[in-house]
Computed example of a mutant assay.
Amino acid sequence: MFDLSPLSISLRAACIATFIVFVLGTLAARLVLGLKGKLASFVDTVCTLPLVLPPTVLGFFLLVLFGKHGPLGALLSQFGQSIIFTWYATVLAAVVVSFPLMYRSARGALEQVNSEHVWAARTLGMHEGSVFLHIMLPEAWPGIMAGITLSFTRSLGEFGATLMIAGNIPGKTQTIPMAIYFATSSGDMRTAWIWVGLMMLLSFLSLGFSSYLAARREQ
């Protein structure tokens, strides 16, 4: 019987990771817009860095941080918890690799918000939280939606960092990319083709849905 667990694991991890990076990436973009000078450049570089680093490098740093002897891993172990080689590690890896896509998309979208609308809202006495939620976020939504889509598809396709911190445990941490790699390694090309086709279909549907929402918003 064909094992569908990589599909459910990938979808759950990608959905949760996308929600996390939507929140963190959008807030980070808003924070950077409020900074100036070298500090803004430094924070922007840090937020973008995972985009250019190889996934295996990111996986190495996560392993160092959350490993048994790492600072965060040691802290978690005091509470009897561990992330490495668990399903939570697949979410963590997806968050790290997809965060820059959400951040860059959100920042670009927020930079295009009409400054006159923001100024008028502040003049009328709206506090910054309300300005962001009711003025900036709705106007920037098409760009943010593009970031959500890119983050979701990137999370689905994450491999290198996931392999290092989550491993390839069937039914637990084996995602679709893992299933493709190990099916190919074992010579099971039929299974590999099935997963490749499914991955392409999911990515196509995700991007198509984003384009559909953008087109409806422009009408």
Rank of each mutant, 00 (worst) to 15 (best):
D44W: 06
S211C: 06
S206R: 05
A140P: 01
P177W: 00
F152W: 09
L27G: 04
F85A: 12
I194W: 09
D188N: 09
L124G: 05
L76T: 05
L53N: 08
D44C: 08
H117D: 14
A161D: 04
S82D: 10
R190E: 06
L156Y: 00
I20D: 05
L92C: 07
L31S: 06
L33A: 15
I9Y: 00
E218N: 06
A74L: 15
T184K: 06
S105T: 11
L33W: 09
S130F: 06
G25A: 04
R12K: 04
L76W: 07
H69Q: 11
F79Y: 10
S186M: 02
L92Y: 03
P142C: 05
Y212W: 13
S77L: 15
S155F: 02
T184Q: 13
K172F: 08
S10Q: 04
R122T: 10
L137V: 08
I144L: 07
L150F: 10
G160K: 03
M102E: 05
L49A: 14
V91Q: 02
P170I: 03
P54K: 13
R122N: 13
G108F: 08
S98M: 07
M164D: 04
K68R: 15
D188T: 03
R107W: 15
L163E: 13
L76P: 03
M164H: 04
T45W: 14
A215M: 10
I169M: 12
S98A: 14
L31P: 03
T45M: 14
L11T: 01
L24R: 02
G167L: 13
R122W: 11
T191R: 00
S186A: 10
S130W: 08
T184V: 10
G25Q: 00
R190H: 10
R154P: 03
L33Q: 15
L65N: 07
I148T: 03
A166N: 07
G143A: 10
G108D: 11
L4G: 02
R216G: 05
A13H: 00
I176C: 00
G143C: 07
I84E: 07
V95I: 13
I194R: 09
N168P: 14
L76M: 11
L213T: 01
L4R: 00
I9E: 01
M136I: 11
G160P: 07
L4P: 06
G34W: 13
L58S: 07
L31H: 09
N114W: 08
V43M: 08
T123P: 04
M102I: 11
A29E: 01
A29L: 05
L124I: 09
L213S: 04
A121Y: 10
L63Q: 09
T123N: 15
H117Y: 12
A215K: 14
G25L: 02
L201R: 11
L133M: 09
F99L: 14
G167Y: 13
T90S: 05
F159I: 12
A28Q: 02
G59H: 11
P177V: 03
E158Q: 01
M178W: 01
I83T: 05
A183L: 01
S77Q: 15
G80A: 07
Q112V: 13
W193T: 09
A166M: 12
